[in-house]
């Protein structure tokens, strides 16, 4: 028998409404969906632990987690940079920057993600690298052998599929994040930019010290949600034969014919990661919210 004190840390970690006895009308407010999710997780955990077939599938597919997480995290980091640049471009007074950024965002939004992944990884990126390679050869011929040889050494065939996958995902999500950055920046009161400029700050200084910190708080939930979306969409890069969890699940199912086990494990793995992340996002949100209103 566990005592009340032993349970205390767990009780503290749970929302209070989960602990209070469910009486009267409270059953309507009770988040049953969380209970159902918990049941799914517990059921799958039980299957993995008790059923050798599920255990084997889990062990096999688990090996892809590192690739999935690495690709999602690095692609998101690059996408943040691209998104910030494109978002600033969208609201820039410079017509070239504005049009280039809008072109980028509209093109990406107009093409299905799966097609973009094929196109970027197998067409655009190799073309870019081949172009740099040719530029290197040309520079060497012009006598600039330093940068020339560095570029000339580039070879599109030697770029791994993992790198291509990161490039594809980050370019795609950079366009989505651009819209989040644009919205966040535009949500900051105009008077903030005026006050900063009236003090002699440059536009860049005003952005960095005044606008972006305020915009970031507004953007935080959207940025978090897009990271969750990206984690899910990273399953698409399995078409590049990148050994992420989707690809290894496909491989496992293919050679063992245990489709049920493989895809159940795969689905629950994604679900666990996204649930964990959205709980984290909610926590961050609450923290940022309480900070802003203190």
């Amino acid at each position: 028998m566990t005592t009340r004190t032993e349970l205390a840390p767990f009780r503290a970690a749970l929302p209070a409404r989960l602990i209070r006895p469910i009486t009267g009308a409270r059953w309507k407010a009770f988040p049953w969906w969380i209970a159902a999710l918990g049941l799914v997780a517990a059921g799958t955990a039980y299957l993995v632990l008790s059923n050798p077939a599920y255990y084997e599938a889990f062990q096999f597919i688990r090996a892809g987690l590192g690739v999935t997480l690495t690709i999602a995290l690095s692609a998101y980091a690059v996408a943040l940079v691209l998104g910030l640049l494109a978002g600033l471009g969208r609201i820039s007074e410079n017509p070239l920057a504005r049009n280039a950024a809008t072109f980028y965002v509209e093109v990406i939004r107009g093409v299905p993600m799966l097609v973009l992944i094929f196109f970027i990884a197998l067409v655009a990126l190799p073309a870019l690298i081949d172009g740099l390679h040719s530029l290197g050869l040309w520079l060497t011929a012009q006598g600039l052998s330093g940068p020339g040889q560095m570029l000339g050494r580039l070879d599109s065939r030697s770029v791994s599929m993992n790198v291509r996958a990161v490039a594809a995902l980050s370019i795609t999500y950079g366009a989505f994040l651009a819209e989040i950055f644009r919205g966040g920046i535009q949500s900051v009161d105009r008077g903030q930019m005026e006050a900063a400029r009236s003090q002699g700050m440059t536009r860049a200084q005003a952005m960095r010290y005044i606008i972006l910190p305020q915009a970031f708080r507004v953007m935080l939930p959207a940025l978090g949600n897009d990271f969750i979306s990206m984690l899910k969409d990273s399953s698409l890069v399995s078409v590049l034969a990148v050994r992420d969890i989707t690809q290894v699940a496909k491989l496992y199912a293919g050679h063992s014919f245990r489709y049920t086990e493989a895809y159940t494990i795969l689905a629950v793995l994604y679900l666990s990661m996204t649930m964990l992340l959205s709980a984290l996002v909610r926590l961050l949100e609450r923290k940022a919210g309480s900070h802003a209103s203190r």
Binding site: D189, G191, Q192, E194, A195, A196, R197, S198, Q199, G200, M201, T202, Y209, I210, P213, Q214, R217, A292
Partner: peptide, 29 residues
């Protein structure tokens, strides 16, 4: 920017920087 730094402006809606403390509002620029 150089000339603006020499011109103080006080706005109708104050336009203080809400994410900074009062002291930081005064020290940033």
């Amino acid at each position: 920017n150089r000339i603006r730094a020499d011109i103080g402006m006080v706005f109708q809606h104050f336009n203080l920087y809400p994410h900074l403390t009062v002291l930081e509002n005064l020290t940033l620029a």
